[in-house]
């Protein structure tokens, strides 16, 4: 029998806890495949966040450390500085990275820390039940912005890639989406490239992945994918914001 598809060796056999239609599972797969294809799984250390992906340490088939909320880039820094030959990555949501962990992500980027950050942006706090995030769209209702996020007083989406791309020491900053197969393929190439640059000691790399939250958005999985395309991408344009190798 010919094998046409198999689970990546970068993932464990632990059943994932993610909600139906959530794209965390797809993003985990892309990360796992990238690490396996680069042949670095055995020297990789993952840093899990606080948020929906808190159990990421159960799913990636490598060593892992679970960080406090927002502190994953600092924890990753500690690991990388002890064993520079390890491939170290953080997997963080938008509350973790763009709110409570803003100082840690900006300064890891500023130092050109040779780590890879997978930043999953679904415009809401998922695990705690759908509260407003710094990435929530203007007008988007959440449990703590029930009338929709108000630009005056609650602000407008924080665009992490655009911000970090202004920092000199970053190597690679890209925003991708997984709402369609073509986009998923682009996302895979970006994630793999980010890890490749770390392998080559090129410095800080971050891939922001636009993701869904059907449960807290109150949409079906299919409608959620459509919502990413129609509402999130206009607020968060896809593309490569920084590439020290000059590619786009």
């Amino acid at each position: 029998m010919k094998t046409v598809y198999e689970k990546s060796p970068g993932l464990t056999d632990v059943p994932m806890h993610y909600c139906p239609g959530c794209t965390h599972g797809i993003i985990h797969k892309l990360v796992a495949e990238s690490l396996a294809e680069l042949g670095v799984l055995g020297r990789t250390v993952a840093v899990a966040p606080v948020g929906c992906a808190v159990f990421a340490y159960d799913y990636f088939n490598c060593d892992a450390q679970e960080a406090a909320h927002g502190r994953a880039p600092a924890v990753a820094t500690g690991i990388k500085r002890v064993h520079p030959d390890n491939i170290v990555f953080t997997y963080q949501g938008d509350g973790d990275l763009a709110s409570i962990g803003m100082a840690e992500i900006v300064h890891a980027a500023m130092r050109g820390e040779n780590i890879t950050v997978v930043f999953v942006n679904n415009a809401i706090y998922g695990m705690t039940g759908g509260q407003m995030a710094p990435t929530t769209l203007v007008g988007q209702p959440t449990t703590t912005s029930p009338l929709g996020r108000n630009r005056l007083g609650q602000g407008a989406p924080l665009r992490i890639c655009e911000m970090l791309a202004t920092i000199d020491a970053t190597a690679y900053i890209a925003r991708v989406s997984v709402h369609s197969i073509p986009r998923l393929n682009v996302a895979k190439r970006a994630i793999k490239k980010a890890f490749q640059l770390q392998v080559e000691n090129k410095g800080f790399s971050l891939v922001e992945v636009l993701s869904t939250c059907p449960t807290n958005w109150g949409l079906s999985p299919v409608d959620s994918l459509r919502w990413v395309e129609q509402n999130m991408i206009p607020a968060y344009p896809l593309g490569v914001y920084k590439d020290i190798e000059g590619g786009t």
């Binding site: 840093v47 960080a67 924890v75 820094t77 500690g78 690991i79 500085r81 002890v82 064993h83 390890n86």
Partner: peptide, 26 residues
């Protein structure tokens, strides 16, 4: 060895966590 000036004490102690977890005397 490695000396790193963190952006805050909050970051510093979490770097200690990562380094300790990686097996260093930190």
């Amino acid at each position: 060895g490695v000396y790193l000036q963190a952006e805050s004490e909050v970051a510093a102690i979490n770097m200690v966590y990562g380094a300790a977890g990686a097996g260093a005397r930190v």
